[in-house]
């Protein structure tokens, strides 16, 4: 039953062509085949949110998709957030400044969840932020600093666009 399928996937603007077994999870494809280990794997059953990526622009859990399903689609991982190696994205900067992380394991998932959220809702309330991150677990911060970081990021983004 060793079916092998050829896929081409655009990840962070780069087109990758690989041959994969259908059962390979997208999360493992990103980490092991592409070496992009910024996407973290926590629970592997869709509960913790650490493996969240952007799939055609929408935040999804990469542990609940197969790599073959990403054929001809576009993915952004946490490595694709910053414009260049010298600079962080405004959201990343805000997490840094507001202590939105401690161990950092959950952070890539939070960032990829929040990136489209802030694009759609540039001035969110505390309640909206908490709802947006309800699918991401963090065992260090107690979430308070993460909510602060999101508000700071929203302010930074507003400043840079005005």
């Amino acid at each position: 039953m060793n079916q092998i399928m050829k896929i081409s996937v655009t990840v962070n603007g780069v087109l990758y062509e690989r041959s994969v077994e259908p059962r390979l999870l997208l999360s493992d494809f990103i980490r092991h085949e592409l070496g992009l280990t910024g996407t973290h794997v926590g629970c592997e059953h869709g509960v913790c949110g650490a493996c969240t990526i952007l799939f055609d622009g929408a935040a999804v859990r990469s542990c609940l998709m197969f790599a073959v399903q990403a054929d001809a689609h576009e993915i952004v991982t946490v490595e694709g957030l910053s414009p260049d190696p010298q600079h962080l994205d405004a959201l990343q900067e805000a997490f840094w400044e507001a202590h939105g992380l401690q161990c950092g394991f959950c952070t890539p998932g939070f960032l990829m969840t929040l990136k489209p959220f802030l694009a759609q809702n540039p001035d969110p309330s505390d309640e909206e932020i908490r709802e947006a991150i309800s699918g991401n677990l963090c065992r260090c911060t107690g979430y308070e600093h993460i909510v602060d970081a999101v508000k700071l990021a929203a302010a930074k983004m507003k400043e840079s666009s005005s």
Binding site: G49, A59, S134
Partner: peptide, 12 residues
């Protein structure tokens, strides 16, 4: 609809 799972799950 907003009660169904989390945003990432509802996207997929």
């Amino acid at each position: 609809m907003p009660h169904i799972a989390h945003p990432q799950i509802r996207n997929r």
